[in-house]
């Protein structure tokens, strides 16, 4: 009898406050800003969950058209070509950038504007479900720098000339670098996907080369509002081998802090190589 009495007491305690207000799910927001956010996806062809990361990035781009720049970094970890791979996306600077964004817990992971993940000392988030929330937070920040680039591609020599212009809208303290990367879309090659290898997987935003050092080149210190910062960079595309197709390639430009552990990206810009 005692036991039944105690069970009743416990049950009463349990059901005493079971009613709560229902949580409402809002529509996806539209964020009106000139900010363009960089999403660097740490990925690899040997990474079983990385296609999920690519889909998450694609979905975020669709939710915020023109406001997200995606770069897929095939560094060292889980990036070794598969037995059925035709191409190797790794190169030393991609590995350097992957290390530059460490520590991270694994792949897929995304470094979003190279800001520290809340509650962590890491620059990247491995939970793909959380990427959009971080992107929204970054888009909601004040737009502080206009950044544009003009690209000239010579199909005969395969040289790419990129002229950039940066214009701070507020005074920005600290040291800043500018990085210029080339990425490539529509590369059909093998990719692990959970329990299978997809031989004709379409790789997007693959980081192929830098026109600057992997961590950028000096852009300026203590940037003044309204000042104009112009730079020029060039590089030559290797011969086509099924990849390095200029029409599929994009130029990504970013201005970012380089003070100690501060690496955050102020603004990103993307345009086609053959614009």
């Amino acid at each position: 009898m005692k036991f039944i009495k105690y069970i009743t007491l416990v049950s009463l305690f349990g059901v005493s406050a079971c009613v709560e207000q229902m949580v409402m799910i809002p529509e996806n927001p539209t964020i009106d800003t000139e900010r363009v956010v960089l999403l660097e996806e740490l990925t690899g062809v040997d990474c079983p969950n990385c296609p999920k990361g690519a889909l998450a990035a694609k979905e975020i781009q669709a939710n915020f058209p023109g406001q997200i720049v995606v770069v897929a970094i095939h560094g060292e970890f889980l990036a070794e070509p598969l037995s059925t791979s035709n191409y190797d996306f790794r190169f030393p600077e991609a590995e350097d950038l992957e290390n530059y964004l460490k520590p991270w817990d694994g792949k897929p992971a995304a470094a979003i504007n190279r800001t520290e993940v809340e509650g962590s000392s890491e620059f990247s988030e491995t939970n793909t479900d959380l990427w959009q929330g971080i992107v929204e937070d970054e888009l909601a920040k004040t737009h502080v720098l206009n950044l544009i680039a003009d690209v000239n591609y010579n199909p005969d020599t395969r040289t790419v000339q990129v002229n950039t212009a940066g214009n701070p809208l507020v005074n920005l303290e600290g040291d800043y670098n500018i990085t210029v990367m080339l990425t490539e879309n529509h590369i059909i090659d093998a990719q692990k996907n959970v329990s299978v290898i997809i031989d004709d997987y379409e790789h997007e935003h693959v980081l192929r080369m830098f026109l600057t050092p992997f961590d950028g080149t000096f852009f300026g210190s203590n940037l003044g509002a309204g000042e104009l910062y112009n730079n020029g960079f060039s590089g030559t595309l290797p011969d086509e081998d099924g990849t390095w197709i200029a029409e599929n390639m994009e130029v990504v430009v970013l201005v970012h802090r380089v003070d100690g552990s501060h690496k955050e990206v102020m603004q990103a810009f993307i345009t086609d190589v053959t614009e």
Partner: peptide, 27 residues
């Protein structure tokens, strides 16, 4: 945490959307 869950769930198509609850009870 609920806001984070809502941020995730709002990207789901309507048939996959769920409403999170603050309280869970275990017996």
């Amino acid at each position: 945490t609920i806001e984070t869950l809502v941020d995730v769930i709002k990207n789901y198509t309507p048939q996959d959307q769920i409403k999170p609850v603050y309280n869970t009870y275990m017996l």
